[in-house]
């Protein structure tokens, strides 16, 4: 029916107006995102020797990227850290979203969401820096724990390593995980839950058999929205990651700004982006299959 409507006479005029309107932001996005991404892609097949850029197409950068173990390690570490961050964030966020959706009075829900989003909007750099202060050798956490006699020696496994990166990023992306899950939970018709109870399920089984499957779209959205930007994070590893917490984005930055080897940086960016996209698509395909097949 919609396809049919799109060919009508007035509808052509409507379509024209729609296109005129959307073309401005669309053109902007193409010019500043799609075109540069294409440029990066082309660039990754060029090579640079100190100051001279060689524009012959070559796979040299990719060969180097795949043969040099450091790059592979950085990429797999980035994905590992991003995966851990995603898992931690989504698992920690779910109960919060559930609480706001099911246990907060409707007129106070937006106030709660507002409270949850505020820390996210306040200085990104300083938030990360303060985690360094909190987790450091003489940091807030260690001095407090020592002060109450809980530990003798300062804990050292919480700063300048992957753990610190996970904690800091889980903090930074918490609202990104809570909001989509909250939206999915809000969409659940409450009478479905009453029906499940009415049909003899207890509270736990109702949650497992009804609430959780219906919240899955939100969980998937949360997973993607946390995972994708996390892989490319750059500041957190620099500030709290230490030498063993650095990620692929730090290497991309180094290639571009320090080593002045933009083509190599571009190749790494392309590899990172492709990996993330493939993983995201696999996740989507898997959930779609799962949703259709089992679950409900």
């Amino acid at each position: 029916m919609i396809d049919q409507i799109e060919t009508g006479a007035r509808v052509n005029q409507e379509a024209k107006r729609g296109w005129v309107l959307v073309s401005v932001p669309l053109f902007y996005t193409i010019l500043l995102m799609a075109a540069p991404l294409t440029a990066i892609f082309v660039f990754s097949f060029w090579s640079q020797d100190f100051l001279t850029l060689d524009t012959t197409m070559t796979l040299k950068n990719y060969r180097e990227a795949f043969s040099e173990p450091l790059y592979a390690e950085l990429l797999s570490r980035s994905i590992g850290i991003a995966g851990a961050v995603t898992l931690v964030t989504v698992v920690l966020a779910f109960p919060v979203a559930y609480f706001v959706s099911f246990h907060v009075a409707p007129e106070r829900k937006s106030l709660w969401l507002f409270l949850i989003t505020i820390p996210f909007w306040t200085s990104y750099l300083l938030r990360i820096f303060l985690w360094k202060v909190i987790l450091g050798f003489n940091g807030v956490l260690n001095t407090s724990l020592q002060g109450i006699g809980f530990i003798e020696e300062p804990l050292t496994f919480i700063l300048y390593n992957a753990n610190a990166v996970v904690i800091t990023l889980a903090h930074a992306f918490a609202p990104f995980a809570i909001l989509p899950i909250f939206v999915a939970l809000e969409k659940i018709d409450r009478s479905l839950l009453e029906a499940a109870r009415d049909l003899g399920e207890n509270a736990v089984m109702t949650f497992v058999r009804v609430t959780l499957p219906l919240a899955m779209p939100g969980v998937v959205a949360a997973t993607l929205i946390v995972f994708i930007p996390t892989v490319g994070d750059y500041v957190t590893p620099r500030l709290v990651g230490g030498p063993n917490g650095l990620m692929i984005a730090n290497m991309i930055q180094t290639q571009f700004l320090r080593l002045n080897n933009a083509p190599m940086g571009a190749a790494l960016a392309v590899i990172a982006m492709t990996t993330v996209t493939v993983m995201a698509l696999l996740l989507l395909a898997a959930t779609r299959k799962w949703m259709r097949g089992g679950g409900r």
């Binding site: 995102m33 540069p36 930007p229 892989v231 933009a262 940086g265 960016a269 990172a272």
Partner: peptide, 13 residues
């Protein structure tokens, strides 16, 4: 959903 580092380096290029 695009990592900011990608936006940054692509525009830099």
């Amino acid at each position: 959903v695009l990592p900011e580092i990608i936006v940054a380096v692509s525009l830099l290029v």
